[in-house]
């Protein structure tokens, strides 16, 4: 149990996907302008991360590894993720139209989101068991959510600020991201201290 909590906390705070591992920067900078789109995108990411881990982990362990096809990992994983995203979109559209309406626009973007491919590959590289991998995916998704929501708050403050002309737009956003990620560095070592 402690192991699960450690994996979850370190995925959310210490190895935060966006702010310390630099995965999923594009949606982090592109979709974080408004709180509601930031939340929608993050929920879609959590969802896709969980189901793609649930599918890719068994594929790697029971299909690729026993047949010495481990090197096909990258191709298989990106295809599985792309197919899953399509599938989720179709299923949502058919059965839960209200959810499709709010998440639909974000789903196609997720195929090329490196955080999703990143989490599935890292789960294998770290040698997690199935449930550890699932917890890690959940934590990574939640970490993405936390970073997106926090940062959309920071960005709404930036809207009205008087910024030098060269810094308008992306540069000031990156510098704000730098300060946000500085605050996350404070979590380093917290988990080791809590659980020894």
């Amino acid at each position: 149990m402690t192991k699960f909590i450690i994996i979850l906390l370190s995925a959310v705070f210490i190895n935060n996907y966006v702010l310390s591992r630099f995965l999923g920067i594009c949606p982090f900078l592109g979709v974080s302008k408004k709180l509601d789109s930031a939340t929608g995108m993050s929920i879609a990411v959590i969802f896709v991360m969980l189901i793609s881990t649930a599918v890719t982990w068994p594929i790697q362990m029971y299909l690729l590894n026993p047949n010495n096809l481990g090197y096909l990992q990258t191709i298989v994983f990106i295809l599985v993720i792309a197919a899953l995203v399509q599938l989720v979109e179709i299923v949502l559209k058919r059965y839960i139209p209200s959810l499709h309406k709010s998440l639909g626009v974000y789903l196609p973007l997720i195929t090329t989101n490196c955080a999703v491919l990143g989490v599935t590959i890292l789960n294998i590289d770290e040698g997690y068991t199935f449930w550890e991998a699932m917890v890690n995916s959940l934590g990574s998704g939640l970490g993405f959510f936390l970073a997106m929501v926090m940062f959309s708050g920071v960005r709404s403050k930036l809207e009205g600020a008087d910024i030098p002309k060269s810094f308008k737009g992306l540069p000031i956003t990156l510098i704000a991201a730098s300060i946000t990620s500085l605050s996350f560095m404070g979590f380093g070592g917290v988990v080791e201290n809590l659980f020894g």
Partner: peptide
């Protein structure tokens, strides 16, 4: 040493883009 860590990455990138804009 902060420059080699995550915040330094965002910071240097932001500065470089600002210079390009200028």
């Amino acid at each position: 040493s902060i420059m080699t860590m995550a915040p330094g990455g965002f910071f240097v990138f932001g500065l470089l883009i600002a210079i390009v804009n200028k």
